[in-house]
């Protein structure tokens, strides 16, 4: 029992990291798009848990609201709408890439090894959960909001324009007139 109490953060990290990596593997390995989307959902939720572990509670909530709530519903909705019955055959494309995949796999193993070495040789940082904002102690959401609207107000406005452009673009591409003008082969 003492072992679990002492290593609680490490156990939670490894469990969530395993779920995240397994979900990512599922995204690229599962054939059916709905299964891949649900696998991606597992990854998003696990990463949100990791954010909580790093005291980024606001980002974790945003991750669940926007990714798991918005983007994932959008994906599933489009998959249902498109309803592709014939899934493309991908095996012959894979065989040509085998040497490249091998080289990249070796590179990944080297990088993970370097990271594991660095993890054991460097002392961990552990900042305080609460931060100072304008001379007062504040929670995570308040501090992020303070930073966002004071220091990064211009990027915030630019991002709102990006969202507007994306919305208009999606609406224009989703119109029916496109089909009638081009004609179907």
């Amino acid at each position: 029992m003492d072992f679990f109490v002492a290593n609680f953060a490490a156990i939670v990290f490894y469990a969530l990291a395993a779920v995240a990596v397994a979900g990512a593997l599922g995204v690229i390995a599962l054939r059916h798009p709905v299964h891949a989307a649900l696998s991606l959902l597992a990854t998003f939720l696990a990463v949100a848990g990791l954010f909580v572990l790093q005291r980024a509670e606001f980002i974790a909530a945003v991750q669940i609201l926007i990714y798991a709530g918005g983007v994932m519903v959008l994906f599933l909705f489009v998959i249902m709408l498109v309803n592709v019955r014939t899934l493309p055959d991908e095996s012959q494309f894979l065989r040509r890439l085998a040497p490249v995949a091998g080289a990249l796999g070796v590179l990944l193993a080297v990088l993970v090894g370097i990271g594991a070495w660095a993890a054991t040789s460097r002392p961990p940082a552990d900042p305080a959960p609460l931060v100072q904002v304008a001379g007062e102690t504040a929670g995570n959401t308040e501090a992020v909001g303070w930073n966002l609207y004071r220091d990064y107000l211009l990027p915030f406005e630019v991002v709102s324009i990006v969202l507007l452009v994306a919305m208009i673009g999606a609406i224009v591409m989703g119109r029916k007139e496109l089909q009638e003008k081009e004609g179907r082969p």
Partner: peptide
């Protein structure tokens, strides 16, 4: 963390555009 908010916003915009395509 502030930039993570921006990344999430861009990801949502990208998903909307991609699914429209």
């Amino acid at each position: 963390q502030v930039f993570a908010v921006f990344v999430i916003t861009i990801a949502a915009a990208e998903a909307a555009i991609g699914l429209g395509i």
